[in-house]
Amino acid sequence: MVALPVAVVARSGLSGGIDAFVRALWHPVARAALLLTLESAAVMALVNAFMGTLTAYVLVRYRFPGRRLLNLLIDLPFAIPTLVAGLMLVVLLGPGAPLGRSLESAGLRVVYAPASIVLCLLFVTLPFVVRAVEPVLRELDPAEEEAARTLGASDITAFRRVVLPALTPAILSGALLSFSRALGEFGSIVVVAGNIPRRTLTAAVFVFGEVESGNPQAASAMALVLITISFAVLVLVDAFSRKRVHA
């Protein structure tokens, strides 16, 4: 179910030889699309690592009104089509929306700009870091933090010296999974980014465009690169997971 389609894509991408494979990827539009995808996914992963860890910490360590609703909302990106996520961002931040007009008047355009890609990726990958960090936090004994505070450590120092080292493998695993997921995001981006070559065209949308244009070899070449990067990321995730289980 998985290996056969991957093998077919690899065969198609390399059907013209290594030179044709390199030429397809070195085309300015393809190169810009891949670079934009990697940059957007990297920015998203960094933000997601911070915000996801903070959200998981709040959910585990605090009790407050609306906590259960917040917990349910975190999994919402898994339950709705990504096209709907793109539509929501257009309705919220598009040129015809009050908030979108306010941002544009201040010189900040979100929809049909690279910023919209990062926002879409943050929305669809929100649960990865939260759900990776949350079970690890539940297993940690709060008494260790309390002991650090008793010895004179501030809340930030206690978190940095006691909690964060234990969470690091889970944070890295969640961030890498969100990075891998972002590489292939299509539905939300195709709605909000504008898909302008060398500006807002991502790798996944580039693949779709090449298929529609009758150029499956270039589409397969880009797809093969994305598959290779995703597989390498999953190997890293497995390594961090093993480290977490061993710890």
Rank of each mutant, 00 (worst) to 15 (best):
A3L: 14
L4S: 05
P5R: 07
V6Q: 01
V8Y: 12
V9R: 00
V9G: 01
G13H: 07
G13Y: 08
S15H: 07
I18S: 02
I18D: 00
A20G: 14
F21E: 01
R23C: 04
A24R: 11
A24C: 09
L25N: 10
L25W: 12
P28L: 06
P28K: 10
A30G: 04
A32N: 13
A32G: 13
A32C: 09
A32H: 14
A32L: 07
A33G: 10
L35F: 11
L38Q: 05
A41D: 06
A41L: 07
A42N: 01
A45M: 13
A45Y: 07
N48E: 15
A49H: 05
F50P: 00
M51L: 15
M51I: 14
G52E: 07
A56V: 05
Y62H: 13
P65Q: 06
G66A: 03
R68I: 00
L69I: 12
L69S: 06
L70I: 15
L70T: 14
L70Y: 12
L70K: 12
L72C: 08
L73M: 13
I80N: 02
T82F: 12
L87P: 01
V90K: 00
L92A: 15
L92D: 07
P95E: 08
P95C: 05
G96Q: 15
G100T: 03
E104Q: 12
L108Q: 04
L108I: 15
V111S: 01
V111Q: 02
Y112W: 08
Y112N: 04
I117H: 10
V118S: 02
C120R: 06
L122R: 13
F128E: 07
F128D: 04
E134R: 14
R138T: 06
P142D: 04
P142N: 10
E144M: 12
E144C: 04
E145R: 14
E146V: 04
A147T: 15
R149P: 11
T150A: 15
L151M: 15
G152N: 06
D155C: 01
D155L: 09
I156Q: 01
R160Y: 05
R160V: 11
V163G: 05
V163Y: 08
L164D: 09
A166R: 13
S173K: 03
S173T: 12
L177Q: 05
R181D: 02
R181S: 07
A182C: 13
L183Q: 09
L183A: 09
G187R: 13
G187Y: 14
S188D: 05
I189E: 05
I189D: 03
I189P: 09
V190I: 15
V190T: 12
V192C: 11
V192K: 06
A193I: 12
R199A: 08
R199L: 09
A204L: 10
A204M: 14
F208R: 14
F208K: 13
E210L: 01
V211S: 02
V211L: 10
G214T: 10
N215H: 11
P216K: 03
A219K: 00
S220L: 03
I227W: 02
I227Q: 00
V235Y: 08
L236P: 09
A239E: 05
R242P: 06
V245R: 15
H246G: 07
